[in-house]
Simulated scan of single mutants.
Amino acid sequence: MAAPSDDSGTMERASEEMGAVLEKLKELGAKPIHTLTVEEARTQPTPADAVKALLEEQGKSTEPEEVASTEDILIPGSAGDIPARVYTPEGEGPFPVIVYYHGGGWVIADLDVYDASPRALANQAQAIVVSSHYRQGPEDKFPAAHDDANAAYEYVVENAGSWNGNIDQLAIVGESAGGGLAVSVAMHARDAKLIMPDAIVSVYPIAGGETDTPSYLENANAMPLGKADMDWFFEHYLSSAEDRNDPRIDLYDEADLSGLPPTTIINAEIDPLLSDGEMLAEAMTAAGVEVEQRTFDSVTHEFFGMAAAVPLALEAQNLAGEKLRSAFADE
């Protein structure tokens, strides 16, 4: 989760509720991420902290959205165990299964920072959600996070039954860096001839290595994510400039997207990654993939998990839930 960049009209363009979260984030002392060390960026207040503080100020509940149960697990990876969390909804099951990848530019954030989204997805889709962490840069450079994401998917496919999951109803969801990982993992599943997901939901994905797209230029100094912040992420995760052209990073220009399942791409208007989502949708359509891309106006990067404070986040979650339920019903 990125911290605030120098404001460039974000507050004027944001909805009242979105603006209140961003104001609270500034009050908590969050600084532009590109001005920080990695350790500082990992420990400073997050947008999730801002939502909680705002709810507390408004006298509203700060309790997380309820699910039937959560369980922290470890997934075997090529370089060690990968922390993950299993969210189970109310009901009898067996349940559909969602593999979820959090954001943070492959450098910051963890399962706790991105706790709200998998809870919402579990309830929206009436599915078990396995939220998987992954190795992060600069300690573990590209493709470490991508390799861990693939390992997590393979493990969930093999072990879903132990959580009362039905692997015949399977989806991949991710946010930001995780949004790109979700598509990359689906490509890996196709190429490795694994069980394919029935759907992908990619929320404001990092889908390319270029930072001169229309939305990067328009939202260069947006909050809570700006162009300099994205360059900081690339610098800390990628080993070289050439990695920006790897098909696992540059999904819209370099990747073979053919044969992927129906995909929903959710974007925020005030976000340098908006064009990434639009161009990914165009590339997927050209590759014959059924895709819907929708941009939510007056909200910023990181809005998806903010349903407790930002009504448009609930609308986005409703869209994701609708698409996932429809995909599962077709199986």
Rank of each mutant, 00 (worst) to 15 (best):
S184D: 14
V185G: 01
H188R: 13
A84R: 09
H102E: 12
R190S: 09
A207G: 13
S162W: 03
G208S: 05
Y100M: 01
D115V: 04
G137Q: 03
L194K: 15
A151D: 12
P197G: 00
E175G: 09
V156I: 11
Y134D: 00
D110M: 07
I128V: 14
V201N: 02
A199P: 01
D147G: 00
S131N: 10
E210K: 14
P118A: 06
G93M: 11
A122H: 03
V99K: 02
Q124K: 15
A122Q: 03
E175F: 05
H146F: 12
P83D: 08
M196V: 06
A171C: 08
D168V: 02
V183C: 12
S117P: 09
G91P: 06
Q124E: 15
G209Q: 10
V183I: 13
Q169R: 15
A152M: 03
L181Q: 11
V185C: 00
V86I: 15
E90R: 14
G104L: 10
N166S: 15
D168I: 01
D212Q: 09
V113I: 13
V185F: 03
D212E: 12
V156P: 11
Q126S: 13
D212N: 13
V107S: 04
A199M: 14
V157E: 08
D147Q: 14
L194E: 13
D115F: 06
Q126N: 15
A84V: 10
Q136L: 14
E90T: 10
F95G: 02
Q169W: 01
F142L: 01
K193S: 13
S162Q: 15
S202M: 06
Y87I: 06
S176N: 03
N123T: 12
I195W: 01
G137Y: 07
R85S: 07
G179A: 02
I200S: 03
A116C: 04
Y155D: 09
S131D: 06
H133R: 05
V129M: 12
I128H: 03
A177P: 04
Y204M: 13
E158N: 12
P118C: 09
I206D: 07
G91A: 05
P138V: 06
S117I: 15
I172S: 03
Q136K: 15
V201K: 04
M196N: 04
S131H: 02
K141R: 15
Q126I: 01
V113F: 05
H188N: 08
P138W: 07
W163M: 09
H188E: 09
A125G: 08
I167C: 10
I206H: 01
M187Q: 12
A152V: 02
I128C: 06
I128S: 12
A192H: 05
V107M: 09
E139W: 02
V183A: 10
Y100N: 14
P89Y: 00
E210G: 01
A144S: 14
D212Y: 00
Y155R: 05
G209V: 06
K193Q: 14
Y155N: 07
Y204L: 04
H133K: 04
L111A: 06
A151H: 07
P205G: 08
Q169L: 07
V113L: 04
Y134G: 10
D148W: 07
D110K: 14
G178A: 05
I108G: 00
D191F: 04
D140C: 07
D110L: 05
D168C: 05
D115Q: 11
T211M: 04
S176F: 01
A84Y: 09
Y114Q: 10
L170H: 06
D110Q: 01
P96Y: 11
A120N: 06
A160W: 07
L181T: 01
N164H: 01
